[in-house]
Design a protein around this nucleic acid. Structure first.
Length: 422
RNA sequence: GGGGGCGUGGCAGAGUGGUCGUAAUGCGUUCGUCUUGAAAACGAAAGGCCCUUAACCGGGCCCGUGGGUUCGAAUCCCACCGCCCCCUCCA
């Protein structure tokens, strides 16, 4: 959510930001109109309530019965009028809130303009791509042959785009989760959270997944709960409706969770393998920081995610996303691992600054000084990292001619010293 | 799942239709007086949201949440949420 004062005072700035994102600038005018109506109604109804409060106090002191009855009759009419205006003000408020929650975040001035993902900018590429003396295979062939990924049985249980990990495959994923959590908690200063995997609607509104981006969510039938699409959702909302002390900030949390996304994609795209699935596991970093530090915090967030890529010894690249690809962030960077079997860069992390967009929606505030007025803090999050694609990158980069897979050094302690999956 | 009890400020805890009430009182917090300093004592201050304002002032709303009754609701009624106790069940 944006600051209504910004919209009132500098509507042209907001319209310009919307245009950069390819969003409709007329939303601003609709919002200003309903805001004005809403405020006029509030003024009117509050003046009447002030009158009613004053007269009610007089009534309680009146001795003369007739005089008293006359006042009560008069106030009955005022009460009816208040009820009517309250209803109108409530409607205006609901419409105002609906428009505010729909309005997207604005891009940071430094974000490159663009209309598609092709306008994203490669910031840097790290690590040399391995030269193979055989033709590298895609992970689905290797994984099936090794008996560590079972696609058919995943479909049998849950339908298309679900898969089963087995044996060393399960253990590899579990090792990755443990290692990544250990790196973030022990080296990067994050504290670990294990949140619920289903959340209420208002929590999804808090992060901005609703009302606008709800089409990929799995809702639980018969309950007002939805499976989380990312740990960002419960963890960012952890302190919603709270006022934190400045001395508590920054707060860094890391959480491992499964994630569910009902991806609506064109048939035939990314159908093979585990690149795009309905359920996957992920380690997510979330930061709660003061506004003046949030861009410096974004830089270290990216560093923290990059450390995982480096530790795995897989080539990766960092992308600065353009205005078309920002989602609800003001600025976003993606990390992509190179996968030689499928011959593509795989997005394994998005690192975003939301500034106060999410904290306004979740009513997540801090007190800059003891006794000072509460202010909205800034939230950031970044994957650290998303598992299936890291699994793809490891399987494909560390494959050998015989179809076996070398276990990256950092993961061996987490796999009982196993060096090769064969 | 069945029965009973309870949701009030940072915490504890009064308040059962208007007055005592600007939500008592206590504890905690902050500031002041006193003190070399501290403690004690005494005095005082302190919430959130919205409207209005350059700011101050002013007004409205908030006693779990949402409705209702009433001229007027923390207080009465209804629904929902949460917590506690007992029974039942269970990983």
């Amino acid at each position: 959510m944006l600051d209504i004062k910004l919209i009132r005072e500098q509507p042209e700035v907001v319209r310009a930001g919307l245009r950069r994102k390819g969003d409709d600038p007329a939303q601003v005018d609709a919002l200003l109109a309903v805001d004005e109506r809403r405020r006029a109604l509030i003024k009117e109804v509050e003046a009447l309530k002030a009158e009613r409060n004053a007269v009610s106090k007089e009534i309680s002191k009146m001795k003369d019965k007739d005089e008293r009855e006359a006042k009560i009759a008069a106030m009955r009419e005022v009460g009816d009028r208040i009820a009517e205006l309250d209803r109108e003000a409530g409607e205006a408020e609901a419409e105002f809130s609906r428009l505010m929650l729909w309005l997207p975040n604005l891009p940071h001035p430094d974000v490159p303009d663009g209309t598609t993902e092709h306008d994203n900018v490669v910031v840097r590429v790290e690590g040399a791509q391995r030269q193979f003396d055989f033709t590298p295979k895609p992970h689905w062939e290797l994984g099936e042959a090794l008996g560590i990924i079972d696609f058919e049985r995943g479909v049998k249980l849950s339908g298309t785009r679900f898969f089963v990990l087995k044996g060393a495959g399960s253990r590899l994923q579990r090792a990755l989760i443990s290692w990544m959590l250990d790196v973030h908690t022990q080296q990067h200063g994050y504290s670990e959270i294990t949140p619920p995997y289903v959340v209420k609607e208002e929590v999804l509104v808090g992060t901005g997944n609703l009302p606008r981006f709800g089409e990929n969510l799995f809702k639980i039938e018969g309950a007002d709960l939805t499976l989380i699409p990312t740990a960002e959702v419960p963890v960012t909302n952890l302190y919603r409706e709270e006022i934190l002390e400045a001395s508590q900030l920054p707060i860094y949390h890391v959480a491992y969770t499964p994630c569910w996304r009902n991806e609506q994609m064109s048939a035939g795209r990314d159908v093979r393998g585990i690149k795009r699935v309905y359920q996957f596991d992920k380690v997510e970093m979330v930061k709660f920081v003061t506004p003046e530090t949030s861009y410096a915090e974004l830089t270290t967030l990216i560093d923290n995610a990059e450390d995982i890529c480096k530790g795995l010894g897989v080539p990766y690249r960092l992308l600065r996303l353009c205005t078309a690809d920002l989602g609800t962030a003001t600025m976003k960077y993606d990390l992509e691992l190179w996968a030689p079997g499928v011959e593509e860069w795989l997005e394994v992390s998005s690192c975003s600054n939301f500034e106060s967009y999410q904290s306004r929606r979740a009513n997540l505030r801090y007190r800059p000084e003891p006794g000072a007025k509460p202010e909205f803090l800034h939230t950031l999050n970044g994957s650290g990292l998303a598992l299936p694609r890291v699994m793809i990158a490891i399987i494909e980069n560390y494959q050998q001619a015989d179809g076996s897979i070398i276990v990256p050094e950092v993961l061996r302690p987490y796999m009982g010293g196993l060096e090769v999956i064969r």
